[in-house]
Design a protein around this nucleic acid. Sequence first.
RNA 1: GUGGUAGUAGCUCAGUUGGUUAGAGCAUCGGUUUGUGGUACCGAGGGUCGCCGGUUCAAAUCCGGUCUAUCACCCCA
Length: 442
Amino acid sequence: MYATLPGFREFPPERFRERNRIFRILRSTADLFGFEEFDGPILEPLDLYVDKSGAEVVDQLFWFEDRGGRKVALRPEMTPTLARIVGAAGASLRKPVRWFTLNEQYRFERPQKGRQRAFTQFNLDILGEPSLGADAEVIACFVAALERCGLTQEDFRVRVSDRRIWTRFLDLMGIPAEKHPDCLSAIDKMERLSPEKLSAWLTPVLGDGTTDFLGRVAELRSIRDEAQLLPFLESLASRQEDNEKSAELVASWKQFRSAVDALGLGACAVLDLGIVRGLAYYTGPVFEIFEASGKGRALAGGGRYDHLVEKVSGVSMEATGGALGDVTLLDLLDSKGLLSTTLAGTECFLAIGGEASRPRALQITQLLRQFGISTSYLFKEAGFGKQFKEANRSGAKVVISVGEREIETDEYPVKDLASGEQISVSFENLGEQVRSVLRGGE
RNA sequence: GUGGUAGUAGCUCAGUUGGUUAGAGCAUCGGUUUGUGGUACCGAGGGUCGCCGGUUCAAAUCCGGUCUAUCACCCCA
């Protein structure tokens, strides 16, 4: 028959239920932090992404020409859409803007562990706010979301870095701005590539200075203590003016770091300049969250991108944000046993003693539903024993038997399946009594 | 897009040097049980052995291709 397309997942109820529970946690966490949810089109003009990310991205997009001859693409991310909406609203928006999305995005890439072609991302962004307190807030919200999913700060690491430190470093090393992207890319690869390969890759860009450069990079990358940042940068410069700039930068970083600590992330957030992130547009702090073992793909990542909104919309606005993907999150929660396996049946089940009793049973069903008690029953005729078995397997907590005997005496046995206790209740009192049995059974 | 590994029931897997009608556990359905569930026992359904082709008297088994999954590259917004 027909298989699902590569990288697209199916969610039968038991998996969908769990994913939804996690999504509710993400949404409520965003609420807690004062973020408001928005959404945008699933299909956008192809150029929206090409202009932002360059022509190479076309290979990684689901795109096609529509019947009106427009080149369109399934959204691979939300940032351009966000920038357009915010840019269009411009000055009328009360700042800072704190918005989030939780929706599906699409990238035409080869699927592998932690990466699908269709995935849901939890995006958090704060716009119109230059203070790095906003960057700390975004990270704190992701951390809170992970904790509310059942993880602890022992289970993951937030590796925080800062693009400005690398830019400053490259400037002090005397490397011209046009070579920065290649250098940043090399620094990013350092974690995975052997020194020989890395050197071979970078030598065409930097020439003879490559070995010395990589040595300095390794030194800076290994710094885990904020106090060592300034001495290191000062060791690269002699001019007073350079040192003043460096001191200013480090002071700004420390302010950011202090907000991160005050928000209670000290146990999981570590300075790690090995985090660079691929994109050229980051302008400040950047971060990635990994499982504590360090294995696997990032759970979340993001950073400050102060010039991107202007590039997409023409309106200048500071911005910082990040995204958390459902694929890696669900994998991790599953491996930690944090996905629930409870049954999803209705709270109450009606055992019906023959077709003559069915109309009354259906009335009772609707009565209970009006009381907010989820209720179901079998459509076909079956013995009480079978119906109890069915009730039990469906996960119901209470069974009400409805047969000719009960209808005649107006006494309906309400059985609590967990305790085995059974009480007798009249039609009139069913709603309240069943509700109290359900509540009392907690 | 490039390379390595794998694919047998819904799930987890067994299947001998190629040899009769491809098995088990779990799950599903039915029964023991036509007025009370979980346990237990009995039984049933479910397979083109991923797909296509080749070798052979004979292929789940060997070979080639392909699809899918997975891992490593590329990329990671």
